[in-house]
Structures are given as C-alpha cells and as structure tokens.
C-alpha cells in the first residue's frame, strides 16, 4: 500500500514539533543515514551538490549542527532562537509503498534578542519506508527570501 498523506503529515508534524521544542537529538533520528537537509539559494536548482547553498547537510553535518545548538559555545545560539512554525497546504506529489514526495508551506516565527522575524518557505520532503519506519530522506527548504539578504539563522529551519 502506498504511503498515505496521513502518515507523511504525522512524520513532518513530529519533526516541526521536535525542532520548535529543542529536541534536536531526537530530530536526528528522523532522517535516513544518507538523507540530506538542504536550504538552497537558487529557487530553480535541483542539483544541490554542484552549487552554493545555505545548507547542504549530510548526516555528519546535521550532527555537527545539533552539537552547535546544544553546546552553548556559539554566541549566536546560546541560547538558540525560539521558534514556532506552522506547516500547511500539504500536497502529495507522488507516492508508492517505498517512498513519497510531499510539498507544503511553512511559516516560521523566530524570536531572539527581542527581535521577532519570520520566514516563509516552500518545503519539499522525500520520505522513505525503512526497517525503522517512515524516515526523511530529503528535506528541501526553499525560502521565499532565499535570493535576498537574510539575517543570521542560527537554528534549524
């Protein structure tokens, strides 16, 4: 049976909740071992490896990012910004019993140093059925403002 929208949404809602509540080590377990977390600059790019991105994280880089947020040794992340994110407008682009691709909208509010900022993004997930259940194999966060000047984002989008 193909992966259902309900199962897919349950996983990415869990991811959003873990990130907003600082459960970063739990977040790491949601990804496949060769999964990627990508924040591109170019709105049209698909070959992320060949171009400059804001983030192009394999498992090792994701772990380092989490250690940076939890380690207390980064002045921009001690403590990390507090975030609240809303995901909506879900659309299953394709689904089989092994993998599915789902696209949705994300609106994230950030609070740090008394300043509230917000980021809108189109987010595409490729999810994969594994022995350990449904996992994230690819998450691509296409920020609405990706081609504009951003401010420091010392957390996980």
């Amino acid at each position: 049976m193909s992966i259902t929208l309900q199962d897919a949404v349950a996983l990415i809602a869990l991811e959003a909740d873990l990130l907003d509540h600082g459960a970063f080590r739990d977040w790491l377990t949601l990804y496949t071992s060769d999964g990627r977390y990508v924040v591109p600059i170019d709105p049209d790019v698909e070959d992320f490896e060949s171009v400059l991105n804001y983030a192009y994280d394999d498992a090792a880089m994701r772990e380092k990012r989490v250690e940076r947020l939890l380690g207390g040794r980064s002045i921009s992340a001690a403590p990390p910004a507090r975030t609240v994110r809303l995901l909506s407008r879900y659309r299953m682009l394709e689904t089989t019993d092994a993998t599915c691709t789902l696209r949705c909208a994300q609106h994230l509010m950030e609070l740090r140093q008394g300043r509230q900022r917000d980021y809108a993004a189109n987010v595409t997930y490729r999810l994969k059925n594994t022995d350990g259940g449904l996992k994230i194999d690819l998450k691509v966060i296409r920020l609405l403002t990706a081609t504009e000047a951003l401010t420091a984002v010392s957390y996980i989008l």
Binding site: V39, I75, S76, A152, V153
Partner: peptide
C-alpha cells in the same frame, strides 16, 4: 564555504552576533 560562511554557516552567525 557553506560550513563557515553565510546566514546558516557555523562561523558567520557568531560574527554577526
């Protein structure tokens, strides 16, 4: 470059702070 630089790098956000 991605590792250190830019708004999501491991260096630049701390400089900016």
């Amino acid at each position: 470059h991605e590792h250190f630089q830019g708004p999501m790098g491991f260096g630049t956000p701390d400089d900016a702070e």
